[in-house]
């Protein structure tokens, strides 16, 4: 009996060892070296936070279109869910092993991914962060992203003007603690609204003000957004301005307000500008949103990597991929576009 087990174990070991032996026959394929892949095919990797979020689907479309245009191969991967750092690490390792020379990544955990990115760069792989900066930002070669602080600032300024003389009672439906994007949008909003000043645009800590009577985490999820809004309303029924981390959270908040019969008295502002989100502006559920352009981020990212591999300059620094305020209630002194523009340009579709 025991002999049989040992034989089985040995088989597994032999299998692994045999494969290890196979490696020496193809030393050129070793991933540790920055030498070009066995075939001259250029491979670019794209790692998003999740597979399913429409934002990342759009990003993937942009990357794929650009890769097809440039004739390079695109590998994609994602974490199991938002916040799954290990899943992204695994995808990163696999792509490098597959011969990718450049990786685009939207870090799920801005700090946790850093050591793995450093390892990748040490192997000669160029890494560009999309949408979300790593912490520190210099951990990657370049960042192609929305200025999330500015995105918050825009809706803050707009809301200030739209509220006029009304005393603000604010609820913020945030992302989750410790994530830079969430803090940037939140802090930008409050600064634009004029209740805080001099906030660090790169901080991952939420700043709060007295007029904010309720802050809840929603993980950017519609159902959680609704629950959060319900809780906020029971805490303070006089809320008249709601900041939301993204449009799903905004829709959740709208449902809660509508159920409470308050949807006419409350302004909801948000960030993203997704096609469905902008439709919310058209329908009057969301008063204003800051539109960002994931398709463009991915497009630019793929191009920058391919250019570099073909002998161009190494991508570096921060590239603002732009943000536009979308609202049908334009306020003097706040630049923006109407919802028709928003629909036409949602997340960068042409």
């Amino acid at each position: 009996m025991s002999l049989k087990r040992i034989a089985l174990l040995a088989l597994v070991v032999v299998l692994l060892a045999a494969c290890g032996g196979a490696k020496t026959e193809a030393p050129a394929a070793a991933p540790e070296t920055a030498a070009p892949a066995a075939s001259d095919q250029i491979i670019v990797g794209l790692i998003t936070k999740t597979e399913t979020n429409p934002f990342f689907v759009k990003m993937k479309e942009g990357a794929q279109a650009e890769a097809d245009k440039l004739g390079v191969k695109l590998l994609t991967g994602a974490g199991a869910k938002d916040g799954d750092n290990e899943g992204q690490v695994t995808a990163l390792e696999n792509m490098i092993n597959a011969g990718a020379k450049g990786i685009l990544i939207t870090p799920s955990d801005t700090k946790a991914i850093v050591p793995s990115i450093e390892k990748a760069r040490a192997q000669g792989v160029v890494v560009i962060a999309l949408d979300t900066a790593t912490d520190p930002q210099e951990a990657v070669d370049a960042l192609f992203a929305t200025d999330n602080f500015k995105a918050g600032l825009l809706i803050g300024q707009w809301a200030k003007s739209a509220m006029g003389d009304k005393a603000p009672v604010i609820a913020t439906l945030d992302l989750q603690p410790g994530i830079t994007v969430g803090a940037q949008r939140h802090n930008g909003f409050l600064q634009g609204f004029g209740v805080i000043s001099g906030a660090d645009p790169n901080s991952s800590d939420l700043v709060n003000a007295d007029v904010v009577v309720c802050s809840q985490d929603t993980h950017g999820d519609q159902t959680e957004g609704q629950t959060a809004m319900e809780n906020c309303l029971s805490k303070n029924p006089d809320i008249n301005l709601v900041y939301t981390i993204n449009e799903p959270a905004a829709f959740g908040a709208y449902t809660a307000l509508k159920n409470a019969g308050k949807e006419k008295d409350v302004l909801i502002v948000s960030v993203d500008g997704g096609c469905k989100g902008v439709q919310g502006v058209v329908d009057g559920q969301i008063a204003a949103t800051s539109q960002q352009y994931p398709l463009k981020m991915a497009e630019l990212g793929v191009k920058a990597i391919v250019d570099y591999i073909k002998g161009g300059a190494k991508p570096s620094g921060y590239t603002d991929t732009g943000v536009t305020l979308i609202t049908d209630m334009a306020q003097a002194g706040v630049d923006g576009q109407n919802s028709a523009y928003g629909v036409a340009n949602c997340w960068g579709t042409k």
């Binding site: 692994l16 494969c19 290890g20 394929a29 290990e86 390792e93 597959a98």
Partner: peptide, 29 residues
């Protein structure tokens, strides 16, 4: 074993020592 055979036919990078070691590293947690 069948999965290993399948992937080694599908991609020449699969059956390398480095890659198998990587798989082991990825499943260690």
């Amino acid at each position: 074993i069948l999965a290993c055979i399948f992937f080694s036919f599908k991609t020449d990078r699969f059956l390398t020592g480095a890659n198998l070691s990587l798989i082991l590293q990825q499943v260690m947690v």
